[in-house]
């Protein structure tokens, strides 16, 4: 199927209409502007935050916590997923425990991680990592299983060493799934870091939004959300670029 490139203006059109309706919809009503803010107020709040400079520290903290969580959560989840796909006995034993741990809502872990690791950077990075671990595990497991099924027959017919088979076929074959998992996990890592910041923190966008919402400062709340989205877009773009580089197909 051929795909014609869509006009850039058409992509932005829904956003322009939405922002226009929002701006005009709350115009003339202080109550509505208080409750829903307005794009122009969010813009002003953003400019003020950027000019005073304190927001950079919050963005840096959330970004760093998210990246640290993504790194350890993705690495640990991918390694465990690959191990489980290779050893069926290990998989059978660990599967119920993985389901059990994976079913715990990430929000419920926040108080525990804060008690164990404090209210600083570490507990946030650990929460972000927990949030991505299970998706990374499941993607690596499935990717390796499919690579084994589709491509490893040739290696078996040569009686190839298992280590070579894993290095040349299974791990590269699972990479595409791992990168797709990475893209899904960007949002989850950000959520993990945000929840931890929201529960207890001294800095970060979760902390910024919490402070703003406690003062009913809706433009600041929305500006914080906008920055969170910007971080998600930035990290997803990095993941996509990496996927294109390592998996040109």
């Amino acid at each position: 199927m051929t795909h014609k490139k869509t006009n850039v203006f058409l992509i932005f059109l829904p956003a322009i209409i939405f922002l226009g309706l929002w701006e005009f919809g709350v115009m003339g009503s202080e109550r509505l502007r208080f409750l829903f803010a307005a794009p122009s107020l969010i813009f002003q709040a953003g400019l003020a935050a950027l000019s005073t400079g304190t927001i950079y520290k919050d963005v840096f903290f959330t970004l760093a916590e998210t990246i640290a969580g993504l790194c350890w959560g993705m690495a640990a989840g991918t390694i465990v997923g690959l191990l489980l796909s290779w050893n069926s006995t290990l998989n059978d034993i660990s599967r119920p425990y993985i389901i059990l741990l994976g079913a715990i809502p990430i929000f419920a872990l926040a108080p525990v991680t804060i008690m164990w690791f404090g209210i600083g950077f570490l507990s946030k990075a650990i929460m972000a990592g927990f949030a991505v671990f299970f998706v990374a595990l499941s993607q690596a497991y499935e990717g390796a299983r499919i690579a084994n099924k589709q491509y490893a027959g040739f290696a078996r017919s040569l009686n190839a060493r298992p280590t070579l088979m894993i290095r040349k076929i299974i791990v590269p074959g699972a990479l595409d799934w791992v990168f797709n998992g990475f893209k899904m996990n960007v949002g989850l890592a950000l959520t993990g870091a945000f929840i931890a910041e929201f529960v207890s923190s001294e800095a970060g966008l979760g902390n910024y939004i919490l402070r703003a919402s406690s003062l009913y400062d809706m433009p600041k709340v929305f500006f914080g959300l906008l920055l969170m989205s910007c971080i998600a877009i930035l990290l997803t773009s990095v993941a996509e670029a990496a996927q294109k580089k390592f998996w040109p197909h």
């Binding site: 290696a155 040569l158 060493r161 070579l164 088979m165 590269p172 990479l175 595409d176 197909h249």
Partner: peptide
């Protein structure tokens, strides 16, 4: 059912068997 690895060029795929034998 034999397939080439989609992430490798034809050249690299032809080399795969040799690599797998060490």
């Amino acid at each position: 059912n034999d397939k080439f690895l989609p992430w490798r060029s034809v050249h690299a795929n032809v080399a795969l068997g040799l690599e797998l034998t060490g």
